[in-house]
Simulated scan of single mutants.
Amino acid sequence: MTVTDMLTAAGRPPVADPDERVHRRRKLAAALRLFARFGLTEGATGHISARDTERPDHFWINPADQPWARLRASDLILVSPDGTVVEGDGPVNPAGVAIHAQLLAARPDAVSVAHAHSVAGKAWSVLRRPLDPLTQDACAFYGDHVVVPFAGIVLDAREGEHIAEVLGPGKAAILANHGLLTVGRSVDEAAWWYISLDRQCQVQLLAESAAGPLHLIDHDTATATAAVNGSPEVGRLQFALLWRQITTEEPDLLD
């Protein structure tokens, strides 16, 4: 199969449950478990959302009192824009409401937002710099991520609005002195962009700690690479491999 064939296949709608609402929740549960598996979580901090198919201003999110590693689709809670839990049981993280409600409202194209306090992401965020085009993988974020100044714990809708304003149409944000955030037109994309972004932070931290100059990929090449590596199709393709693995090994997440 050629690269073109792979991208074409990834661009096709996935084989979903008859109920897209159920399918989206299952993808969200899988993403949460993958974040736990990759060590991207820290206690009760962080959250991933999925826009509801029936009420687009509402979103599914992980309850604040459940460990990500064991979350099932049925454990997720549906939250209104003001933070009211309208389906499911469990407390909602106030920061999750402030961030996800505002970003999903500002981005009609977005289905999912991912935010966590991963180690590499936090370490890079204290430098308050965008990532450089050091590698082919890093080019996925070239010209498509921003740095958001730190203004304390995000508990107010105005802070969520500020993040949305700085992010604009981009796919990712480095929240200074805080962590990382990604947005996708599917849960697949948002989750993969976060996993990849955290790894690019780790790579740049390692590269900058080594002796010798950093050799950046030039603007034209980085732009051309971003058009492929940073495309929604590639985001979905990359997540599809992880989805197959985790649903095979931990099928209870689909419950």
Rank of each mutant, 00 (worst) to 15 (best):
H215K: 14
V203E: 05
L237A: 06
T225A: 06
P232S: 00
L237E: 04
G212A: 03
P213S: 04
Q204S: 01
D220C: 03
Q202N: 01
L214E: 06
I217F: 07
Y194P: 12
I217Q: 12
Y194D: 12
V203I: 11
V234N: 03
S196H: 11
T221G: 10
A226I: 01
Q202V: 06
V228C: 02
S231W: 15
A207Y: 04
C201R: 06
L214D: 01
D198G: 03
T223D: 04
D218H: 09
W192F: 12
L237C: 07
T221C: 09
Q238N: 15
G235P: 05
V234H: 04
D220P: 03
T225N: 07
C201Q: 08
C201D: 10
Q200M: 07
H215D: 07
A211C: 06
A224T: 08
S209C: 04
R236Y: 05
A222V: 07
A224L: 01
A211W: 13
R236W: 01
A222Q: 01
H215G: 11
L197K: 00
L206E: 08
S196D: 03
L206M: 14
L206R: 15
L205C: 00
G230L: 09
R236M: 14
Q200G: 01
P213M: 04
Q202W: 15
Q238R: 06
V234K: 00
H219G: 12
D198P: 15
P232M: 02
L237W: 01
A222L: 05
A207G: 06
V234F: 08
A224D: 07
A211V: 14
S231F: 14
N229D: 11
L205H: 09
L216G: 04
